Amino acid sequence: MPTSSAGRTAVVTGASSGIGAATARALAAQGYDVWCAARRTERIEALAEEIGGTAVSCDVTDPESVRRLAQAVGGRLNVLVNNAGGAFGLAPVAEADPEDWRRMFDVNVLGLLHVTQALLPSLRASGDGLIVNIGSIAGHVAYEGGAGYTAAKHGTQVVTETLRLELVGEPIRVSEVSPGMVHTEEFSLVRFEGDQARADAVYNGVSEPLVAEDVADAVAWIATRPAHVNIDELVIKPRAQAAPHKVARDA
């Protein structure tokens, strides 16, 4: 039988929009008391009011900010969803801006490290902890122009695998959800520095990409499995996508 969510708590980073906001809603719908963490305070405050959760302003790349998050959450936590992340640019290796790569590694890998380290004691104390890292198919397959992002998401994937090895035998499960093409309001827009035309072109001709709620549904499913069941990884793509570089588009 699925795990009862009554009285259980969850933290979702990057909860101000997209997959993070959808995941906070999905976990709240399952009965979790959700801590919504992100930099944009107004957005997470509105979300927390909507779902009956708690908003905590947090920049995952800032250890002091993460420490304050851990203090707010307290001594017991059941679920941590490391969702905060992002892609910046689509330049080939020969022309890539090292600063874009640094930013991607900082949020996708070091940010995950900061939050996991800070909240691991609370996950242990719950007696039934779960860490869900939001990865990407970019963490498994390379594609032209995506070296910086794929390197960062490969880092997410390897950290997840290593953490599972290191925590085996403890009452903590470690999972990764790796989505393919997800149409959210901001991911591609941020990647292309506000260029709406380039952002829209990513999804041109794809009538049914994934949406944030599809990924959130997967996270909620993992979180409600029995305590002895660990879902190592879920790779989720829309039917129209076979690989990052192979997408069926309408004429």
Results as ranks from 00 to 15, higher is better:
L69Q: 09
L80K: 06
R76D: 00
L69C: 05
V73N: 02
F88E: 14
E95L: 14
R68Q: 10
N83F: 08
G89Q: 04
N82C: 14
R68H: 07
R76K: 13
S65Y: 14
A87C: 09
L80H: 06
Q71R: 13
V81Y: 04
G75T: 02
G74N: 02
S65V: 10
R76L: 08
V66W: 11
A94P: 01
N78T: 00
G85F: 11
A87K: 09
E95N: 15
A94V: 14
A72F: 04
L80E: 03
G85R: 11
L77S: 03
G89T: 12
G86Q: 11
P92L: 07
V93A: 13
E95H: 12
P92E: 12
G89V: 11
G85C: 12
A91Q: 08
F88R: 13
N82T: 12
L90K: 02
L77M: 04
V73L: 05
A70M: 04
G86N: 13
R67W: 11
S65M: 14
F88G: 08
V73Q: 00
V73K: 07
R76F: 01
A87I: 13
V66P: 15
E95Y: 13
P92V: 11
R67Y: 09
G86S: 13
G74S: 04
V73M: 05
V93Y: 10
V79D: 01
A94S: 12
N78G: 04
A87Y: 07
L69V: 04
V81E: 01
V79E: 05
V73H: 02
S65I: 15
L80C: 01
L90M: 09
S65A: 12
V79M: 06
R76H: 07
V79K: 00
V93P: 05
F88K: 14
V93D: 11
E95I: 13
G85H: 10
R68K: 10
L90Q: 06
G86R: 12
L69W: 09
A70K: 07
A91M: 10
Q71I: 14
G85A: 09
Q71A: 15
L90A: 09
A94L: 08
R76C: 10
A94F: 02
A84T: 03
G74Y: 02
V93I: 13
A70I: 02
G75Y: 00
N82H: 08
L77Q: 03
L77T: 04
V73I: 12
L90F: 06
A70E: 06
G85Y: 14
P92K: 10
A84Q: 06
L77Y: 00
V81H: 03
V79S: 03
A70N: 01
A84F: 04
N82D: 11
V93R: 02
V66N: 09
R68F: 05
Q71W: 08
V81M: 06
G86V: 12
N83Y: 06
G74C: 03
F88I: 15
G74I: 04
G86C: 07
F88V: 14
P92Y: 08
G75W: 04
E95R: 15
G74M: 09
R68Y: 00
